[in-house]
Design a protein around this nucleic acid. Sequence first.
RNA 1: GGAGGCGUCGCCUAGUCUGGUCUAUGGCGCCCGCCUGCUAAGCGGGUUUGGGGCUACAACCCCAUCGAGGGUUCAAAUCCCUCCGCCUCCGCCA
Length: 432
Amino acid sequence: MIDPRLLRDEPDRVRASQVKRGASPDAVDDALAADAARRSAIAAFEERRAEQKAFGKLVAQAKGEEKQALLEQVKALAAEVKELEAAQGVAEEAWSNALKAIPNVVADAAPTGGEDDFVVVEEVGTPRDFAAEGFTPRDHIELGRMLGAIDLERGAKVSGSRFYFLTGVGAELELALVNLAMEQARNAGFTQVIAPSLVRREAMEGTGYLDQGGGEDIYRIEGEEMYLVGTSEVPMAAYHSQEILDASSLPRRYASFSPCFRKEAGSHGKDTRGIIRVHWFDKVEMFVYTTLEQAADEHQRLLAWEREFLDKLELAYRVVDIASGDLGASAIRKFDCEAWIPTQGKYRELTSTSNCTDFQTRRLDIRGRFTATDSTPATTGPIATLNGTLTAITRTIVAVLETHQQADGSIRVPAALRPWLGGREVLTPVTS
RNA sequence: GGAGGCGUCGCCUAGUCUGGUCUAUGGCGCCCGCCUGCUAAGCGGGUUUGGGGCUACAACCCCAUCGAGGGUUCAAAUCCCUCCGCCUCCGCCA
C-alpha cells in the first residue's frame, strides 16, 4: 500500500505513476475522496466520544436520583456514538480498499510501456554456436531423460501435468545448486533460512498476491484458509510483520529456500513440455529489509548477486529493465536476468529482482526504529523490502543442461558446481 | 485429537472473582539531567504504538490501543462469544 501522505500531498505524482503503468488515474481521486470521508468520520466520532467519556465520569461519581437522571441523558449520546463508530469503520474500510487498489509508484528510471517495452541493460557471454561446433543441441527434456535426471512421465502419472521427478544426477544437481547459492549468500552476509511454504491468509494478503487477479494463480488448502506460496518472498515478507526493527539492524538480508507452487492459470498451452513452467519448483530467494534511502542501491546489489551466480554457472544471459506496465503491484522497478536457452533460440527469465520500497511493509505493519541524531529526533518510520532470485531450480537446470551439453549428450559441469557434485567434471548419460 | 491453564505499554509484573476512583501498578532495562577525579552508586524527570485536530509533519489538545475481532452496558483490562498464539498433561506420530 502506498503512503497515504504521498497521496494527499502529491497526488499528481501518483496519477502520473498510474498513467505510466497503463492503469487508471481515477483510482487516485477515489482514494483522495475516501481519505476525506474517513477523516470527517473520525472527527465526528471522536468529538462525540469525548463527550461520552466526560459524562461517564460524572455518572461514576453521582448517586441516587442524580445518577438516574444522568443515565437518561447519556443514553441517547451512547447510541449516537455507536452509530458514528460504525460509520467510521465503514469509512476506514472504504479508504483502505481504495488505497490498496493503487499499486506502488513507479520509479522514474523504469522504462515506460508494456510487456515488450523492456530495456536490455546488458548482454553477458555469448550464446554457444552449436552449428559451428557441428551438432544439433538436444533440449533439456531429452538430456534429462538420457541422464536419468528428469522423469516427466512419472511426474505426470503421480501428480499430473507440469510435475516431474528429479532423479539421480537431477536430484544431485538441485542440491548442488542450492548449496552453491547458499554458500554465496552466506559469504555475502545473508542469513540462511528454510521457510514454510504453507502460510495463513494474513501472510498471503499482506504481500498483495491475493489482490492480483483474485489470487487466481495460488493454491488454497480447502477449508483451511491456508495457502501454498508461489515464492518464499511471501513468508519472508511476513516474517517481520507487526514488528518494529531497530534501524541499526538494517539491512537484514535473508537467503530463503522453499518450494514454490503456482497454478499457472491462464498459461495453458505455454511451455507445456519440460520443466520450464511447472506447478512446483524449489527456489533460493534473497529477501532484504533496508532503509528507504538504501533501497535503490540495494536493488543494484541484488542484481549483482544474481549475476554473480549466473556467471558461476557460465551461462549466457542478458539483463532487462522491466517496463512500467509489466511491473507487479508492489514493485517500483524490476530487473530480470534471462538466460539463453539454445533449443528455444531465445532468452528466458531465470531470475528477477524487485524493489518494493515501503509498499509491502505498510501492509504488513513493519516499521523501523530510528535513533535520534543531531538534526532529527528519534522516530519510527517506514522501511523498504526487496527481493531477488538466487536460483529457481528447474529453470536453472534447463539452462545448465542445454548450455553445457556435448555432442554425446554428456554435460560439462561448470567449475563452480563441481565441489558440490563430488568433483565430477562431466555428467554422463546412463544406459537404461 | 482430548482436558486444563495462560496472553497487560522493550522484559518481568499488579489489576480481572466483586465493571466506574485504571489518565493501567511496581521493578528491570533504556534516555535526559543533577551530583561526582573517572566509572559505579545515589537523586530527579522521561520512556507503547497508531490515528485525528491545529500546525513549522514543533508544542499542545483529543481518540483508539491490556493477543485479535464481535457483543452486553450509560461505562469493559475486568462480564459473554468467536478466533489466534503459548504452556502443562493425555492420545497419536516422522
